[in-house]
Each structure stands twice: as structure tokens, then as C-alpha cells.
């Protein structure tokens, strides 16, 4: 249980870090919080020959809001900082609510917001939430930069669109529309275990109390965040009722293809998905309808 030898580089500017990534390419691995990478190195599942440690990049640790209310989080902002931040609680209550569910306090002391996303673990809360909230990711390389919508970022298990010379530097979460509700539901064997199934819901009501928008994004049921598009289409334009929510929740089964493992069969995961989807939608619609929860 000891990591294989590697060359250690700790740049102090983003530019310097990008230069190292350009030079070493596939041989290099980025070290952010290290709470997923270091276990993999301890097991020698990962044996990078060069480790580029971003922990000295203070410029990537920030939380701020833009003039239009968009929330911006620097990739190296640590989980505990996001968890305790008032701006996050106000602008992105779904993220605020999710933070205590991510691993343990000791992991959140060290783990980073951007690291969790770039790691692209299919069991991660933050990847799913960023998709549900229509987040965008700023990816930088020595060649330039690009913004990638969260829903286009994840390609598969532990795989994202990031090129070997590229790194995630910033996350943008758009302001929530008025009358928007949210919920995160997950089932795990013990608190802080990876979820067997989890789901994030974000819904918006129109002036007539009909569903204007709905996103239902699952984690731990596939290779990455999995959105139930058809199930939520059933809700659009309709007046929300318990029966309608139940019908939509039942329908998620058709869009999910989870695998079985030692902890849960396919049938059990699908059962959990239906139950959690119903709970998440109920909670999200109740929040959207509650007066005063949403400043315009």
C-alpha cells in the first residue's frame, strides 16, 4: 500500500501548471485534493510518472457571484469552504445541501470542488448536481481555454472531455429562475458510503403553477450522470399532482440501465431509482411552490 515513485512538481501559477501539462501530457497526473487519486496511488491502480500538485495555486480557490447572479467556484476551492459559504447557500442551495453528504469531514477538509468533477466518478454527487443545475466548466490549456457545458463534460466512467494538457479551472452555476425548487435524494448502505442510487431534481413552476422545466439526473446508475429526459417531459406544461409525480417517477426505469454489484441487484437499484425520484420531485415541487423561497 505504498505509491510507486513519481516526479513531484508544485507550480505556483496556473500558467506554470499548464506548461508542465503540455510538456508531460499523458505521463502527468494532476493532484488536486488527492482524496481519490492518492488512494488509487496507494493501491498502485494509478502510477503516474509525474505529479503536478495544484495545491499552491491560490488563484484557483475562490467563490464569487457575477453581476447576473451566476455563481463562480474556483476548481481548487475545498469542499469545506463550499459547504460553509453563504453565497453558495443563497445562489445554489442544492450544492449547499449536498456538501455534507460528500464523504467525511476529513475528506472535505482536503478534497476540492473541481477535483471531484474532473475525477468524473459516476457515484459522485457534484457531477450530477452540476448537470442538473446547467453548470459550465472552464477548461484551460497552454493552447487556450474553452467553456464546456456540464452535460457535455462527462464521457464515461472516470472519463471527461479534458485533454491530457488541459485542466478544469473554474465552475459556473447559473442563477436559478424564480419559482425553482431542488432536491437531492440518495440511498447508501451507511452514511458516507458511495450511494447505491442517487438523484438530483431541479424544477421550475410557471405563473399558473404548471411545470415549466424539470431536470432529473441520477448518479451511481451508469457510467456518469444519467438524465431521465422522457420522464421529466411528462411533467412539462402540466399541473403538478401527486399522481403525475408518481407516474413520472415510475417512468425513469425505462431510461436507466444500472448494473448489479455485491451491494445491489439491478432490480433493487431500479426500485430505489423510482422511490428516490418520487421523493426528489415531491420535495423539489414543494420548494418551488413555497412562497418566498425564491427571490427573483
Amino acid at each position: 500500500m505504498k505509491p510507486a515513485p513519481f516526479e513531484y512538481i508544485a507550480p505556483t501559477t496556473v500558467e506554470e501548471a499548464l506548461g508542465h501539462l503540455a510538456e508531460y501530457g499523458y505521463d502527468a497526473k494532476i493532484l488536486a485534493g488527492g482524496q481519490s487519486l492518492i488512494p488509487m496511488m496507494n493501491f498502485r491502480l494509478a502510477q503516474p510518472s509525474v505529479l503536478v500538485d495544484l495545491n499552491k495555486l491560490a488563484e484557483l480557490s475562490f467563490i464569487r457571484s457575477e453581476k447576473d447572479g451566476e455563481l463562480r467556484i474556483g476548481a481548487m476551492t475545498r469542499h469545506f469552504q463550499v459547504e460553509r459559504d453563504d453565497l453558495v447557500a443563497e445562489h445554489a442551495p442544492l450544492i449547499h445541501e449536498a456538501m455534507p453528504k460528500i464523504a467525511t469531514p476529513q475528506i472535505r477538509s482536503r478534497g476540492t470542488f473541481g477535483g471531484s468533477i474532473a475525477h468524473a466518478d459516476p457515484a459522485a454527487e457534484l457531477t450530477t448536481i452540476c448537470v442538473a443545475l446547467d453548470g459550465r466548466f472552464r477548461c484551460q490549456s497552454a493552447r487556450g481555454e474553452r467553456w464546456v457545458p456540464a452535460q457535455d463534460f462527462f464521457l464515461g466512467m472516470f472519463t471527461s472531455v479534458l485533454e491530457p494538457d488541459e485542466m478544469l479551472v473554474e465552475i459556473a452555476i447559473p442563477p436559478m429562475a424564480p419559482r425553482t425548487g431542488w432536491a437531492l435524494e440518495e440511498a447508501a448502505r451507511r452514511a458516507h458510503d458511495f450511494a447505491l442510487v442517487g438523484v438530483g431534481a431541479v424544477v421550475t413552476l410557471d405563473a399558473k403553477d404548471c411545470c415549466e422545466r424539470a431536470r432529473l439526473v441520477f448518479f451511481s446508475v451508469g457510467d456518469g450522470p444519467v438524465e431521465a429526459v422522457k420522464a421529466t417531459e411528462m411533467l412539462i406544461g402540466k399541473e403538478v399532482s401527486p399522481d403525475l409525480i408518481r407516474a413520472a417517477a415510475e417512468a425513469v426505469t425505462d431510461e436507466l440501465d444500472p448494473s448489479a454489484d455485491i451491494h445491489a441487484s439491478v432490480q433493487y437499484r431500479l426500485h430505489l431509482a423510482r422511490v428516490l425520484a418520487r421523493r426528489a420531485l415531491e420535495k423539489a415541487f414543494a420548494r418551488a411552490a413555497a412562497p418566498g423561497t425564491q427571490a427573483a
Binding site: M1, G34, I38, P39, N42, F80, Q106, I107, S109, R110
Partner: peptide, 26 residues
Amino acid sequence: EHGVCGACTILFDGMPVRSCLMFAVQ
């Protein structure tokens, strides 16, 4: 030694961290 048990918890700049999930050089 992979961040699950918490036995190696120390305070790093005042924050509780798993010392098996950091390199000494950090």
C-alpha cells in the same frame, strides 16, 4: 491506508485530514 477508517486523522493547518491521503512533501 486509503482514506476510509480515519485512524490516521491529524490536524493540518487546524483542519482534520487523513494523513494517509497526503504526501509529506505537501
